[in-house]
Computed example of a mutant assay.
Amino acid sequence: MTAAQRDPARGRRFEDLAAAVYEPLLRYLRRRTDPATTDDVLGDVLLVLWRRLEDVPPELPRPYAYGVARGCLANSRRGTVRQERVAHRLARQRPDGGDPADGVLTEALDALPQADRELLCLRAWEQLPPRGLRTRLSLIDPAAAGDPIDPGRARGPGNWWHAP
């Protein structure tokens, strides 16, 4: 039995609150982040509002909901930053456990644009064949599936990007 079934008045109060704040919160979040994050954060906000329903002031539910949304968005951003730091740290580690900070290679990788660095790491460390890289890149960005050295050059047997 759910909490709303145990206390129908609480369930109705939450439904009324959600109806009052859903669209304004959706607009608020859309102005501040991407669509996927908007959906995730909006779900988090509604969950917090449900859990803390007794704390929501009946006369000012929207300002309270905006405060919750602001906090949930900040948590989401902190989580994204943490994930990016971990991913960057892992991407710089060699699979053999060696020290990645051995100078020239690290500097060269750091000087590359993120997409190029990712491509090289996938090829070198994950041993992905060129064909697999081309397929993976075309899913992400169809324009990226061309020749990374000379996008105007046709694919062919003399091109390293071509995989038989």
Rank of each mutant, 00 (worst) to 15 (best):
L60C: 06
L46P: 00
D110P: 03
T37Y: 00
W125P: 00
D39A: 15
A36N: 03
P8F: 01
R62A: 07
W125T: 02
L105Q: 05
A4H: 11
L119A: 10
P58I: 02
G103C: 12
P95F: 02
L46E: 09
L29V: 10
L42C: 05
I140R: 14
A144I: 05
L42A: 08
Q93V: 02
A18Y: 09
R12D: 00
F14N: 01
R92Q: 13
R62F: 13
L46C: 09
A19G: 13
P164K: 12
A20W: 02
R94L: 15
A91W: 02
D34P: 01
V86K: 10
T33D: 14
A9F: 00
L53Q: 12
C121T: 15
L112P: 05
Q127R: 15
D55V: 05
P157Q: 07
E126A: 15
A3D: 13
R77G: 01
R136P: 01
R85V: 03
E23V: 15
L42T: 09
A144D: 03
I149K: 12
V104T: 13
L25R: 06
R82K: 14
E23H: 14
W50S: 08
A91F: 04
V104I: 12
A101C: 10
D102Y: 01
V41H: 10
V68W: 04
A163W: 04
W160E: 12
P61M: 04
L25A: 08
D116A: 15
T80W: 09
A115F: 01
D7F: 06
Q127A: 13
W50D: 06
T2W: 01
E23C: 03
L46V: 08
R62M: 13
R92W: 08
D150Y: 06
R6E: 11
E54L: 01
D16V: 04
A87S: 11
L90P: 02
A20R: 15
E126I: 01
R13Y: 05
P157K: 05
E23Q: 13
E15S: 11
S138Q: 14
G158T: 13
